[in-house]
Design a protein around this nucleic acid. Sequence first.
RNA 1: GGCCCUAUCGUCUAACGGUUAGGACAUCGGCUUUUCAAGCCGGUAAUCCGGGUUCGAUUCCCGGUAGGGUCACCA
Length: 472
Amino acid sequence: MPEKKVVTRFAPSPTGFLHVGGVRTALYAYLWAKKNSGSFILRIEDTDKAREVAGSIDHIIKSLKWVGINWDQGPDIGGPHAPYLQSERLDSYKKYANVLIEKGHAYPDPYTNEEIDAFRKKAEEEKRPFLYREHRPESFGVWDGTQALRFKTPEIKSYKWSDVVRGELSAGPEALDDFILIKSDGYPTYNFAHIIDDLEMGVTHIMRADEFIASTPKFLALYEALNITPPIFVSLPPILGESGNKKLGKRDGAKDILDYQKEGYLPEAMFNFLALIGWNPGSGDNREVMSEQEIIDVFDLGHIQKSGGQFNEEKLDWLNKEHIKRLAPEITRKEVFSRLPEKMQNAMLIPLILDRVSKWSDIEGMVKDGELDFFLKTPEVDKRKLNYKGCANDTTATHLKNISEILANISEWSTEKIKTEVMAYADKTEKRGEVLHPFRYALSGLDKSPDPFTIAFILGRNETISRIQKVI
RNA sequence: GGCCCUAUCGUCUAACGGUUAGGACAUCGGCUUUUCAAGCCGGUAAUCCGGGUUCGAUUCCCGGUAGGGUCACCA
């Protein structure tokens, strides 16, 4: 039997922005399709008109593209199974609904919402689980489309199935119920629509959050009633919030993935990081910093984790830094300069800045009043900080005078030359620090700053000497 | 509460019966052309508990504990 071409999909509902959890689900589906030279579909599940948020679809598309997830079929580019918006696929759902009705596997719900609520409340009071099917009508009329259409679960039984991540799963008959296929507003529910779409689109692997495990028996009953061979289930563990063990959700302040773009994270770092929450190459492959292609090459379903993992921003920062190091120099230069005032756009500052930065927005934090905070600002020198570890005032003053003299006579004003000359002098003294520390501090006035030679070069001879004189 | 699932350093994880339980982030210490950062080197740190099975359990089984998911005309 020839292997069927792998088809995966990501099917978000347009109810707002995408956070890391959603993007990771999309990423794994994308990765698996790429790994197998298969097809990856973006499908929008817009069947809940009340919760729909305007602009969500564009936002979702933008988010996915930023991270580097691209689809072969989708609402924006079409494809062999268009349309990819569920709201435009109503005919399909109706068609399969009719098949179920004909087979006697679907019926119109005769109850009002109030009546169902009453049933539910009663069950609750009696401390037993509410099951709609216990109230299933004996006989029913023709569905005219104004009522909800319910699935008449053919056989109430236990189910066993297999999940690539979780292994063999099972659930008792209480997991089955007569759920709604088509709502009274004419739109299908997720439970029904995704099954029809996955069938029609030839989806081979359903990769989705593991919260759907509990309703899988219902899906299984529906697959059976429709005579469909179910796809392969791949249940993904949740991404947990940093503070605790709760699933990361919008309510817990999960960020819009595009916020990370705004903060200056690299998409390749986000791609890499998300791939690693819940999956790893396994078996002695200790690589962590990987490119998209490297990840695709080794991606497999067997190393997807069973339990959730915390989103750790410190590690993201580290990974982002690693990816920055791998950037082409021109790109780095462009990114750094675009965040620097024009007069600070000096190539020799780039490595100095890069050492202190894990994401681009950190650079903006280093710029104050149009100047880089670690130098070029008029330094406010605190005398007490001028001396190196217990060095006497006189000694420090002498050193500064000597440095000043050396600098005044230096033949060529370059970082290298300044360094050579000053270091030659410093090495002759008891402790280099006695010379170097006041030199650096007199120029920057900061506890933390780049080395004095670079600062001196950037400041220029006059400004350097004048600052040293001022301190003396 | 019913049903289902999960459990290795603080965090992300490796191990698919036999390892001094490995790596990474974080943390701590050392080194370096002062400090900080960066870099390099090194350290601390984990198999939830209790029973089995086995010559041998992180690994298999059972129970407990803890945590999670789910019980909508939301997806």
